[in-house]
Design a protein around this nucleic acid. Structure first.
Lengths: 202, 202
DNA sequence: TCGCATACCAAGCACTTGCTTGGTAATCTA
DNA sequence: TAGATTACCAAGCAAGTGCTTGGTATGCGA
């Protein structure tokens, strides 16, 4: 009867997400330009034209991937800030959730790192510039608080240290291998230790 | 006559290097795959077919760019090691020359960062894997020395910290703008301060 | 059981890609 | 000054690109 208002044969959005995951893995692996719609279709076991039943274009695929990643990351950052702890703990929290995304959103991070720069020039992807600015504001805000509170080094340049830390945590997915012997917890602990000691006043 | 054994109308290798620099800037900017031979030729003021008078293929261009960069970097690292100073000073020296390359070899670094991973799979570019291994040996060697000497933190994992530092210094060329208001010396000082304090024992 | 939406296939179009070919004006060498 | 070399142009080819079109088998709701 009709508790489910709409129900298709396989779950309308399920297949779409499957295809997005396949596309994301390929984009991350080979690069967006080097990945063809035929590559994606092959991996999904369909023909290239059939992708256009689910998506307007190849571009709309990377759009969906990047939008979801940004939304989730901003949400995670917001949760850390909302805890309202001290600069040192908040900084550590941002590092931890960034490295945590390495496990859950590895492909999306790699795509964001590799493709966002030139995509952001197109109006369709202007939200990338907004996200970029928000990320920077969050990180530099915490760093400035820490300097003002006297827990971070006096000579710390928030913008430069933000870039250092950002490059560090967002580049780790390049070499991190899910399921490998190098556990994310160990990476996290070493990174937190070095970065926190690096920014702290001694 | 004839102190110059060979002398062509413009200096044989000069034009080749001009074209390589143009190609490097484009590869760095748009990515190797996304850059067409027509792009390179346009920038050089010639037609695409004319490039093949100077180069066998598009691939041989990126080959020449990466080979030169690796040779120079290994040479620079070797000079730092050869000074035979302590782990802390040697570590600092490696950071400094890496960031120095950001100014002189910016495009090559970006290409190495963005394209080396998948190129290394091809036999033609197997030297990339060798270089990668040498880089790692140099950095982890210094880190291990520092731990053994008691100047670096006891819990330091050389391989992980190498990756952190490597990602940090080699990613900076992504946002560094030559000739901009942000001077390389300032970047260098901040990075050295944070990284050295991050790895040092307190 | 009928009508319809879903999820695909088969074929191919317009365009771009790296690269090749045949030729030519300018310069260097003997 | 004659021949060779250099550095390019003009034209185009084969392969591959994203995407479109028209069609079809399958399952769902009424």
């Amino acid at each position: 009867m009709a508790t489910t208002r709409k129900k298709t044969q396989k779950g309308e959005a399920v297949r779409r997400n499957e295809l997005l995951q396949i596309a994301a893995d390929l984009f991350a692996d080979r690069g967006y330009v080097a990945t063809t719609v035929r590559d994606i279709a092959d991996e999904a076991g369909i023909l290239s034209g059939s992708l256009y039943h689910h998506f307007d274009s190849k571009e709309s695929m990377i759009d969906a991937i990047l939008s979801a990643f940004i939304e989730e990351t901003l949400s995670n950052y917001g949760a850390v800030i909302a805890e309202g702890r001290g600069p040192r703990e908040t900084f550590e929290g941002l590092v931890v959730v960034s490295l945590g995304a390495m496990v859950e959103s590895r492909s999306a991070i790699l795509i964001y790192q590799n493709e966002a720069r030139y995509l952001a020039a197109e109006s369709r992807f202007s939200y990338l510039r907004d996200a970029h600015r928000k990320f920077e504001e969050i990180w530099t805000g915490v760093l400035e608080d820490g300097v003002a509170a006297g827990v971070f080094r006096d000579d710390l340049d928030p913008q430069l240290v933000y870039r250092l830390v950002r490059d560090t945590v967002w580049t780790a997915p390049r070499w991190y291998r899910p399921g490998g012997s190098l556990k994310p917890e160990k990476i996290r602990d070493q990174y937190v230790a070095v970065l926190v000691d690096g920014v702290a006043k001694h």
